Amino acid sequence: MATGGRRGAAAAPLLVAVAALLLGAAGHLYPGEVCPGMDIRNNLTRLHELENCSVIEGHLQILLMFKTRPEDFRDLSFPKLIMITDYLLLFRVYGLESLKDLFPNLTVIRGSRLFFNYALVIFEMVHLKELGLYNLMNITRGSVRIEKNNELCYLATIDWSRILDSVEDNYIVLNKDDNEECGDICPGTAKGKTNCPATVINGQFVERCWTHSHCQKVCPTICKSHGCTAEGLCCHSECLGNCSQPDDPTKCVACRNFYLDGRCVETCPPPYYHFQDWRCVNFSFCQDLHHKCKNSRRQGCHQYVIHNNKCIPECPSGYTMNSSNLLCTPCLGPCPKVCHLLEGEKTIDSVTSAQELRGCTVINGSLIINIRGGNNLAAELEANLGLIEEISGYLKIRRSYALVSLSFFRKLRLIRGETLEIGNYSFYALDNQNLRQLWDWSKHNLTITQGKLFFHYNPKLCLSEIHKMEEVSGTKGRQERNDIALKTNGDQASCENELLKFSYIRTSFDKI
């Protein structure tokens, strides 16, 4: 039985969820670079991206490699990797027998973001014989899940209580170790020597080791999670996991709180800001991140802002960003909400898709409305799209047979046209069989910064309504002859009103 693990408890099935942008060198404390989270699957090609990484700022997932063999891993080693800020997950990587050479110096898994409450997941690794993470000293947050690894031993010899604050939620089941077939031998045991430290858990006094050649490092209890030197002297209180010299914040392997210019500090002093819960960055760093993602459509890219001495992905609820200094300031009234469309555009074809934009005031991208039916549609669209004030790209209304009016965009005031449909149009209306009105132009103002209007096959939309939009939106004169079809717009509506004058002759039985 794995020490510190839980057996036999019912657990939810383990679901495996399925960018080499360097964020800056980590400095003297770390020998390499800070790398983003990685999802490495199918083959070993991307694994080489770990070569210079000291910190993975995010998670590391290595999974679904069915053609790899043990010899493929023999020359692979990433000794610079010290810390993973989120979680480490391995799933069905064939041929991998140990992690001792792959990650010989991995010391800390912070667990800032977890995989279903777990910071370390080893699942269905069919050839893994031992973990071998002999320098792993601290899992700051989260638990361990090690399950269905039929060859995995050296679990009962690990004292997880020396690595985690609590072992109650560890789930370590259905491994070879369960069948008591392992016969784990710690260093020196074969020669009758006791080389590794022994600890007591559940009444068992057991030597602690990761492999037959690597003991588990056990520091004096007084050192807590700070770690200790090879001689057993406690590291500085700002260290986490390990250090090369005692009581020196510049000799830590990793930091308990924050890293700044080669030393570990309790908090980031001005003019620095907390970033990702582990390091200090200056304003320029946060500003660069903001600008890199301002026009990016890459998933996970955030326009970072500053709030409460932190550089964070977005302002919290009730705050909006001051564009001059990136500071989050309290909103006066309802907060603006910028919604970034991942692929640059979004099609609204149902109430469900409209709900995804609920509360958005600025759309960074283009909207395509293609709704053919739905219950209580006008009210639903207004509830979900009615706060949109600005669209950076274009607005396209296409084959939306259920629409009679666009009044559900009740606050839309600006279409920038930074991206144009077919390279020309910022407003595009095609084949809307029941569209009769755009907006009530006596109450609604709309500016279209650039781009043209396109109207074709809107049989109940009168040309007068379209011409009014040209005047109000500032697009009059931009359109070419064929942009607004004269014969297919309003051709099934009563669009022309003329005053009919009647004269009559009164007659009676005795007068003409």
Rank of each mutant, 00 (worst) to 15 (best):
S77I: 09
Y87F: 06
L81D: 03
N117H: 01
M65L: 09
V144K: 00
F285L: 08
V218Q: 10
N175W: 04
T320E: 15
M65G: 03
F258K: 00
K251W: 03
K310L: 12
C35R: 02
G227W: 05
C255D: 00
N325T: 05
R110F: 08
E130L: 03
C311V: 14
S98G: 00
P79E: 09
L128K: 00
N138I: 07
P269V: 08
D165I: 07
S98P: 03
H214A: 14
L136S: 03
P187N: 06
D248M: 04
N295V: 05
Y272A: 03
S77F: 11
M83P: 01
G183A: 09
D165P: 11
T157Q: 04
Y259M: 13
Y304S: 06
P70M: 12
F283R: 12
C301S: 04
I122S: 09
N295Y: 09
E124I: 04
D247Y: 11
L260V: 13
I306A: 08
I82E: 12
S324H: 11
K310V: 10
N257H: 10
C53K: 15
E231W: 10
C182V: 01
E51K: 03
I56C: 00
G318L: 02
N138V: 02
R74W: 04
V108N: 15
I82T: 07
N105E: 05
D177G: 12
A156N: 15
R110T: 10
Q276C: 02
T157H: 07
R41T: 00
R69D: 01
N52V: 15
G333V: 14
L81H: 00
F283I: 10
G183Y: 15
S317D: 08
P270M: 13
R41A: 00
T107V: 08
C335M: 01
E207R: 09
N309Q: 09
R74G: 02
F205M: 07
C235N: 01
C255I: 00
D75C: 12
V305Y: 05
A119S: 08
T320F: 14
K217H: 08
F283V: 11
L29M: 07
F116L: 00
A190Y: 14
H28A: 14
Y94N: 02
R162Q: 14
Q276H: 02
P220F: 03
F103Y: 01
I163A: 00
S284F: 02
V265K: 06
N42Q: 00
Y273T: 10
E207K: 05
P187Q: 03
S161F: 06
R145Y: 06
H214Y: 06
E130A: 12
G318P: 01
F115K: 04
D247A: 11
N138Y: 07
C268W: 03
Y30A: 14
T250V: 09
E180Y: 07
C235F: 03
T199H: 14
L326N: 13
S143T: 10
T229R: 08
T250E: 11
K310T: 10
N43I: 04
N43A: 06
Y304A: 04
C153V: 00
D39N: 15
P104K: 01
C53D: 01
G241N: 01
I62V: 11
L164E: 07
K148D: 02
Q303I: 09
I62F: 04
S143I: 04
H28Q: 10
E207A: 14
N295Q: 03
R110N: 07
C280Q: 03
K224G: 11
T267E: 13
Q245I: 13
F123A: 05
L128I: 09
F66V: 01
S284H: 08
K129N: 06
E57K: 04
V173S: 09
Q204P: 09
L131M: 15
C315H: 04
C335A: 01
I109K: 00
D184V: 14
I146G: 00
Q303N: 11
P31Y: 14
R74P: 00
F66H: 03
L99Y: 01
P220N: 09
L155M: 11
T329N: 09
L289A: 08
C209Q: 00
D86P: 00
S225N: 15
N170W: 04
I306E: 04
T221P: 08
R162M: 12
I146V: 15
N195C: 13
A198Q: 04
N257Q: 06
R297L: 08
L240I: 09
C286Q: 01
C315Q: 05
R297H: 07
P31S: 12
G132A: 15
R74L: 02
L289F: 07
L152S: 03
I185P: 10
E181A: 09
M65C: 03
C239H: 01
K217P: 05
T211Q: 04
L114N: 01
V265T: 11
F78L: 07
P313R: 09
C239R: 00
I201Y: 09
P79L: 02
N242A: 07
S112R: 13
T107I: 14
